[in-house]
Design a protein around this nucleic acid. Structure first.
Length: 294
DNA sequence: CTTACACCCTGCTCGC
DNA sequence: TGCGAGCAGGGTGTAA
């Protein structure tokens, strides 16, 4: 599922059933996802109280009572399903906790409330890591991540400064998690459309000029916040059969102006162009070649 | 330092 | 109906 709005939606779904609860049982069904699981993964989790469930970029971070943090990434197809204690009892079998596709149920957590949380990931691009909470920021996965787009650090000045001298195109610039994190292919496309910026122009075009951010940087920042906030409010985007921890669906995909709309008319009033699909860095970019010239 | 590209893995859809 | 090609929201590692 996972760009920032989807991960945040998952976090909000999991928080009430995990935070403040003890992990009573963990079932690890294979030795690896994208990477091998940490040493003694099950033993290090069982018996731990989950004190907090945070999100950093597209990572979920569960802080445990013993001083370790469980870092989780959903990759492309990772998802969590919650089965309440009552429901789990009714089903009777652990294996059926996640419903449908049990073939890719790789990790199952059970809490002291009897809740079962199942991690399912068909492509196994997701992964889980354990590290000391106090050293979280120094962990290789976290260390180089850029600023949170919904936090106070995202300003036109920051973006313009980061774009200084960058020859990479704007699409790649916004996809780069080391600068501003959390944006992925969908929300970069949608943001650039709203800001009327071309995905193919060099990032340096929105850099600082005359001591001030260029207008492109000024436009970009509020649109980043707006797109992500709206998407979180809509419960994220649901493509294919992705769903929330409770089985419900996000609906921000209905608000897409460009993503997945190749050949369809541009939604800008008065614009008669059609949305174009190109490939950048081996990923699809959707944009309006008429509205997004800057 | 930057940028470009192959690669990780499975499933789905499309055209033939 | 079967089959290969291409596509998919993620990030890493390597090479140039």
């Amino acid at each position: 599922m996972p760009e920032l709005p989807e991960v945040e939606t998952v976090r909000r779904g999991l928080e009430p059933v995990l935070a403040g609860h003890r992990i009573t049982r963990v079932e690890q069904r294979r030795p690896d996802l994208r990477f091998p699981f940490p040493e003694r993964f099950v033993a290090r989790l069982e018996g731990q109280m989950i004190e907090r469930l945070d999100r950093r970029a597209k990572y979920l971070v569960a802080h445990l009572s013993g001083g370790e943090a469980l870092i989780m990434h959903l990759g492309m197809t990772g998802r969590f399903t919650i089965t309440s204690g009552a429901r789990a009892e009714q089903l009777g079998e652990f294996e059926h906790a996640a419903g449908g596709d049990t073939k890719h149920d790789h990790v199952v957590f059970e809490t002291d409330a009897g809740t079962i949380v199942t991690y399912n990931d068909a492509r196994r691009f997701g992964f889980m890591e354990l590290t000391r909470s106090a050293a979280l920021g120094a962990h290789a996965l976290i260390r180089d991540i850029g600023i949170e787009p919904l936090g106070p650090l995202l300003t036109p000045e920051f973006v313009a400064d980061a774009a200084q001298g960058k020859r990479a195109d704007l699409k790649a610039f916004l996809m780069d998690q080391r600068i501003v994190c959390g944006l992925g292919n969908i929300y970069v496309c949608e943001t650039l459309y709203r800001a009327r910026l071309s995905p193919t122009k060099p990032a340096s075009r929105i850099a600082t000029a005359g001591g001030k951010p260029r207008p492109g940087a000024e436009r970009l920042v509020p649109h980043i916040r707006e797109v992500l906030s709206e998407a979180i409010g809509a419960g994220g985007s649901t493509l294919r059969d992705y769903q929330h921890t409770d089985g419900s669906l996000g609906y921000f995909q209905h608000a897409f102006a460009v993503y997945g709309r190749e050949g369809e008319p541009c939604r800008t009033p008065g614009c008669t162009a059609v949305i174009t699909r190109i490939v950048q860095s081996n990923r699809s970019t959707f944009y309006c070649p008429v509205c997004q010239k800057a």
